[in-house]
Design a protein around this nucleic acid. Structure first.
Length: 258
DNA sequence: CCGGATGTTCACCT
DNA sequence: GAGGTGAACATCCG
């Protein structure tokens, strides 16, 4: 589930722990720790530290501590966050909705409560002091000047938008929805966009993220229903195309998107 | 049984 | 170097 919108809801839930002290760190499987030596090392760095802030960049949730270290949490496709039993998102399309121990991949206990990452497919990960310089500007506040360098590419427009190095936070659903709203074909070379199209694209991405956030998730787009049904374009009624672009299934309207 | 799924990474081609 | 493809990760669902 997690695209930027979902991770933002996790960030909000975790923010209630700000100011507390980390008392324990749990991780049953070291494979979940990326670029982080092991659980013992992570514990020595985090346990006893105070949680100073909870941030987010793209799809990465960032837990800041008073020791200067930051813990980055990625949720993969099926990761959810549970804070003292409260889950901002409980319905996951590609994973079970239960909270069994088998999916509790990573946990942080604090003086104010505990947070658990529930991730059946284990596609998420946790990383100490993640390198954020490899991520592009956050999609929620994207500006056309920030995206222009990435658009100077011969790759498919959709592939560029999915690349977290170009712009951080967009996933398959948000990209398809944004391109459909902007009337831009996903397979067009990114470099073929004119100045007006670039502006339209960025404006549409920002608006789409904001609107679907209010609606409650990346799956609440206008294209979603037709996407699930492989149906007709909600705008013009023509049959939607199903292609593979940027390595992902892509639903789009060849009539409306040019 | 098979294929695909809101993600990322890596090996291997062209 | 740039890009593309396919596999892998682990689980559920149609």
């Amino acid at each position: 589930m997690p695209e930027l919108i979902e991770v933002e809801s996790y960030r909000t839930a975790a923010a209630r722990l700000v100011g507390s002290r980390i008392t324990r760190v749990e991780c049953a499987d070291d494979r979940y720790l990326r670029h982080t030596v092991d659980l013992l090392a992570l514990r020595s760095v985090l346990e006893g530290a105070r949680l100073t802030d909870v941030g987010r960049h793209g799809k990465v949730m960032l837990l800041g501590t008073d020791r200067g270290h930051v813990l980055g949490v990625r949720f993969g496709m099926t990761g959810r966050l549970s804070v003292d039993g409260y889950e901002p998102i409980t319905e996951l399309r590609y994973g079970p909705s239960g909270t069994g121990d088998g999916v509790r991949r990573f946990g942080i206990g604090t003086t104010a409560g505990a947070a658990w990452v529930l991730d059946p497919r284990r596609l998420g990960s946790v990383e100490l002091d993640p390198d954020l310089t490899v991520l592009g500007p956050d999609a929620a506040s994207l500006r056309v000047d920030d995206l222009r360098p990435a658009l100077r590419s011969s790759r498919a427009l959709k592939a560029v938008l999915l690349d977290q190095q170009s712009v951080a936070g967009l996933g398959n659903l948000l990209v398809d929805e944004s391109l459909w709203r902007a009337g831009l074909a996903p397979g067009r070379p990114a470099e073929s966009l004119g100045a007006a199209e670039q502006v339209r694209l960025v404006r549409t991405v920002v608006r789409t993220v904001a609107q679907l956030t209010r609606r409650g998730g990346s799956h609440t787009g206008d294209l979603q229903e037709a996407r699930d049904a492989r149906g007709a374009c909600p705008r013009c009624g023509a049959a939607l195309a199903v292609d593979r672009i940027g390595g992902r299934t892509t639903i789009w309207c060849p009539g409306d998107q040019r």
